[in-house]
Design a protein around this nucleic acid. Structure first.
Length: 496
RNA sequence: GACCCAGUAGCUCAGUCGGUAGAGCAGCGGCCUUUUAAGCCGUUGGUCGCAGGUUCGAUUCCUGCCUGGGUCACCA
């Protein structure tokens, strides 16, 4: 408390004095329970039919208008705000003078009374009994509003993220984003459960990290005397489950990536990965499309406004090969270009490329710059270069440079990544060893060789389709938020 | 990591072409038994993000740093 400045400390001191007066008058400021029989939303919905009916509600005091021997106030519960009318002659002089007069905005109270309509028309609870449920000793932001329009709105993003509880009190509509998030995740679980998938949990602490190209967080286990990594993906463990005979698995996992943060990236984020034995990339496309449409339906939206563009989530998703998109955009035949030609072409477009980049990285760069931003309506892009896809099977009937991989783009952003999973253990070993060479050359995001995973693959893995989806991004899309911080309850911020 | 913007009372913000600051709300005291951004009278509260520099004097100008936001780069 000593770090509070004097003006704030003064407010806290006044509230502590009130707390003491309440105790001295024999009221418990922090009692054990209260049983409200109604939520305020249902009072407002029922309307005049409720007039005269006794109800009890509980919530936080968010406005207070004292007029001597009678007062109006609003209390806010999870469902909304309710005006209450507290009159000395109805609650009793002792409660009014010794308890009610020592209340502040922010206190949590329970009230029993009956409903009436004031002369200005607001359905109001006429309080007969008032119980303090928690005394607040630290002030809230201003909560003034009229006709739904807030004054002195609590909208400083830093304060809102650092003190989320205040955000939810001052801006209760923000809670709907997180209710929708819960509904989306529930619909995802339901989607897989009804299709016979098993939900699993694999290690977040891993002795070797893998399954994606990213930099990990490291930690240390004292008893094992061993370095551990926080997972960047759960892919390799899920594949071991497929090898072991689980044929359909999914996991909603927190991943941790030690990389930059911005409106699309939080260092810890939620991924969905699912794998189905005996299926391939094209089966996964269909499953992914169905899944996203199911999740969208859970929010009741058919179209969303995302990044200033309207996206229709009911239409069939587009399916395009990377070259088809690049050729159309550039007017060239990109697949006929060799690495050197691709480099020169990218340089001619003034893209940031270097001669150290391989064929796959160059193609990925071109695609990211020229095509991704235009992929507004949901589009599956397939035929990825092998060099940047070490966990995907080579494209069937191809020349060996491409793999069976798709990524799903919506609103210019990547939402899903999928492979016909590489199941050839010898090929997989070579690809991971190639990644290890990239690491030696300084690519900190290149993947590492996981001997345990390779040995599992050697036991034999059925043909399998697998998909990874960024759940936070999906929530962003479906709740029309343009920052990942707005769909994560406590986004990462620097400690101050 | 680079660039741009911001940080003044508990909250929302003004302001100082350099002379150590104001408002509304909240708070405190008083009046008020159907108010609703309640009202009326009175009133407390600030290391002006932090640290240096220039200056007789810095919250204001300069430099560095901290925190957040935005854009870009990388990634999901």
């Amino acid at each position: 408390m000593s770090q509070d400045h004097r003006s704030l400390q003064q407010i806290i001191d006044f509230r502590l004095e009130k707390l003491a007066r309440i105790r001295a008058a024999g009221y418990d400021p922090y009692p054990y329970k209260f049983d409200p029989d109604t939520q305020v939303q249902s009072i407002q919905e029922t309307g005049d039919d409720l007039v005269g009916t006794p109800v009890s509600i509980a919530g936080r005091l968010v406005s207070l208008r004292k007029m001597g021997k009678a007062s109006f106030a609003h209390i806010q519960d999870e469902s909304g705000k309710q005006q209450i009318y507290v009159k000395r002659d109805d609650v009793g002089a002792d409660v009014y003078n010794n308890l009610f007069k020592n209340l502040d905005i922010g206190d949590i109270i329970g009230v029993r009374g009956d409903v009436f309509r004031t002369k200005t028309g607001e359905l109001t609870l006429h309080v007969r009994e008032l119980t303090l449920l928690a005394k607040s000793i630290r002030p809230l932001p201003n909560l003034k509003e009229k006709d739904g329009q807030a004054f002195n709105e609590f909208d400083d993003k830093e304060l809102r993220y650092r003190q989320r509880h205040l955000d939810f009190i001052a801006n209760p509509e923000v809670k709907t984003i997180f209710r929708q998030r819960a509904a989306i995740i529930r619909s995802i679980r339901n989607f897989f459960d009804t299709r016979g998938f098993v939900e699993v949990e694999t290690p977040a602490l891993q002795p070797i990290y893998g399954g994606a190209s990213a930099r990990p967080f490291t930690t240390y286990h004292n008893t094992l005397e061993q370095k551990l990594y926080l997972r960047i993906a759960d892919e390799l463990y899920l594949k071991r489950l497929i090898i072991g005979g689980f044929e359909k698995v999914y996991e909603l996992a927190k991943n941790f990536r030690n990389e930059g943060m911005d409106r699309n990236h939080n260092p810890e984020y939620t991924s969905l990965e699912f794998y189905q034995a005996y299926q391939d990339l094209y089966d996964m496309m269909e499953l992914t499309e169905e899944l996203i449409k199911t999740a969208a339906a859970a929010t009741g939206k058919r179209t969303v406004n995302f990044g200033g563009k309207t996206i229709d989530l009911t239409m069939p998703f587009e399916r395009k090969s990377m070259f088809e998109l690049l050729n159309k955009k550039t007017g060239k035949t990109i697949e006929k270009m060799a690495e050197q030609q691709l480099l020169e072409y990218a340089q001619s477009l003034k893209l940031e490329v270097s001669s150290k980049m391989n064929y796959g990285q160059l193609l990925d760069k071109l695609f990211g710059e020229l095509i991704e931003p235009d992929l507004v309506q949901p589009t599956f892009v397939y035929d990825y270069p092998k060099a940047i896809s070490p966990l995907a099977k080579v494209k069937r009937n191809g020349d060996g440079t491409l793999v069976e991989r798709f990524e799903l783009f919506i609103g210019g952003m990547e939402f899903a990544n999928s492979f016909s999973e590489l199941t050839d253990p010898l090929d997989q070993r070579q690809r991971l060893e190639a990644q290890a060479k990239l690491r030696e050359l300084g690519d900190e995001e290149a993947q590492v060789v996981d001997e345990n995973f390779l040995q599992a693959l050697e036991v034999g893995m059925p043909p399998t389709g697998g998909v990874g989806i960024g759940v936070d991004r999906l929530v962003m899309l479906l709740t029309e938020q343009n920052s990942i911080k707005d769909v994560i309850l406590f986004p990462a911020l620097r400690q101050i």
